[in-house]
Amino acid sequence: MSEMSLEKAPAASVEAAHGHEHNPGARSENLKFATWLYLASEVVIFATMIGVFIVFRFHNPEIVQRVHKETNILLVTLNTFLLLTSSWAMVMGLREIQRDNRQGLIRWFGLMCILGTVFVGLQYVEYQELAHIGVALFNQGNEFDGFGMRFYAPTAFHGVHVIIGVLWGLFVMNNARKGNYSSSNYAGVEVFGLYWHFVDVVWIILFTMLYLV
């Protein structure tokens, strides 16, 4: 940096000084650390929402059980498998780019995005079924009162994360198509992977908490 004169530094180099850590390894490590910290805050915000359900489950187990009896576990089990498979596809895609295989990355990520989209679609179907038996966002004076809002809030919040994840996945695929990643530069893929797996982990907890226990 010693050649960089201060006053008349060309705009581009000033931007570069502010925009990039010069060591790409350091940049990748910074990005991953930042993503983990972001996920730390996501842990807390999801826990607030799931916690509201857990408190309800603790004090009103009979209402939760009533809903479980009325609904079919098969659809949501299928959904769980979709998300688990997409997580696997994600990590296989990362493995391909670590071997410099961009086409492999794009193929695996395509699978991942399709699975994520189907997941959101099936969640919509499931919401419709629930609405059909009378589980609503607000209390309707029926036997499921109190369940709906505490169920829809965390699952919908998770659904939004899946939608964002799919869009982000498409963005990463496009970047890969343009050749922006290689075996020595895949921090963007890895960071997205952390996010996607986190969404999967949240679903694993949600699935057990909300549907099974």
Binding site: E42, I45, M49, R150
Partner: peptide
């Protein structure tokens, strides 16, 4: 670690205000 608690709580508060929930 602390601010997301507020974010979660405010989300529920906003739902109470506009979506008819009663958290």
């Amino acid at each position: 670690m602390a601010t997301p608690f507020l974010a979660g709580g405010l989300t529920l508060l906003i739902l109470d205000k506009i979506a008819g929930t009663s958290f």
